[in-house]
Simulated assay, not measured.
Amino acid sequence: MTTDDAADADATAHSSAWFAAGDTESTGDRIRSGSADAPADWPTLAVESGFAVDEAEYYGKLREATVEAARAAVDERERADDRQLLHAVRAMDDAERVANELAERVAEWAGTLFPDAGTGVEGCRDIAERDPDGPAEERVVSLASRVADLDRESDDLEAFIESRAPVAAPNLAALAGPVLAARLISLAGGLEALAKKPSGTLQVLGAEDALFAHLRGHGSSPKHGVIYTHEYVRGTRPEDRGSASRALAGKLTIAARIDHYSGDYRPELEAELDERMRTIRARAGDTAAGGDGGGSE
């Protein structure tokens, strides 16, 4: 290497150094977005450029910059659409669960005060509309109002999920439906994590207890997890649900990967899944025809 080449390489290293941040770019941003063609003696370059007085100060500033970069990355990740779906579906489930639990308490308590008190969340809505007479009725009416509020919040969260899932995961939402798509993302821990899972794992998401029991030798292997709520699994005859679950899980896995890595909507996935399910469900007709034929001979 000539002297001029060495000088050019040194200048390039200085310009690409993480501490050579511009006026509008912090050192943390530089660490997240910067790159270098080759390694360099960064501590020496930092001292020569006046960024640090010695190597110890350089590493101190490097630590501060990397912590800043990590915090920014975490904040950005937590604000991502799939993380918002994760929190929303968990909050929806919590609101529904707590509303139902409190509704049981309200029904038991209200039954001692109002002879015509109803049960469940619907009964709480009716009780919440009453004018209380005395401290006990006031508390029951107040508690029933909280149940009604939680039920409305659950509905609002579901509406939020239905509007956001097609944005965060268009293909997954189209195949699974917005709420099931959000549940799968939640169970996996995010869209990226879901996209990296094999279809066999996606197929049993939500059935972890049954799966672990099977691995311990205490039960049969589960054929499906939360995807059972999909019409293509729930609406298929029991003997074909294993095939239906595998077909659905396979397409959902492809959809999750497309959503994470490219984000473009692929309508052909729905057509392919529909065709596969028609084939699986046609077995019922073939079996019936075979049985009729055998019985007539």
Results as ranks from 00 to 15, higher is better:
A182C: 13
L86T: 10
A284H: 02
A103P: 12
P166F: 05
E108C: 14
E272V: 02
A282I: 04
D4W: 06
I258E: 08
A289I: 14
R97W: 07
A91K: 07
A182L: 10
P198I: 08
T229Q: 07
A144Q: 04
G111Q: 15
S35N: 10
L85N: 13
G235M: 00
A117D: 10
K197Q: 15
L85F: 11
V89D: 01
G200F: 10
S163D: 04
L248G: 12
S26R: 00
A193F: 02
H214I: 06
M1C: 08
P43R: 04
E270N: 05
D41T: 05
D240G: 00
I127C: 11
A244Y: 00
S49A: 08
G250E: 11
I258R: 09
R241S: 01
G225R: 01
T24R: 07
S35L: 13
I161K: 03
L187R: 03
D94N: 06
K197Y: 03
A210E: 03
A195M: 03
A17G: 06
D41S: 06
T112H: 12
G263D: 03
R278I: 01
T119Q: 06
G291H: 09
D29N: 14
I280L: 04
L215K: 15
R139F: 13
S33E: 15
V67E: 05
L187A: 11
A103D: 14
E138L: 14
D4H: 10
T229N: 07
L175W: 00
R237E: 05
R246N: 01
H224V: 05
G293K: 13
A159G: 03
G206K: 01
G50D: 01
T3H: 14
L113M: 08
A159I: 00
D149N: 13
V141D: 07
G217V: 12
A247Q: 06
A128E: 04
G263M: 06
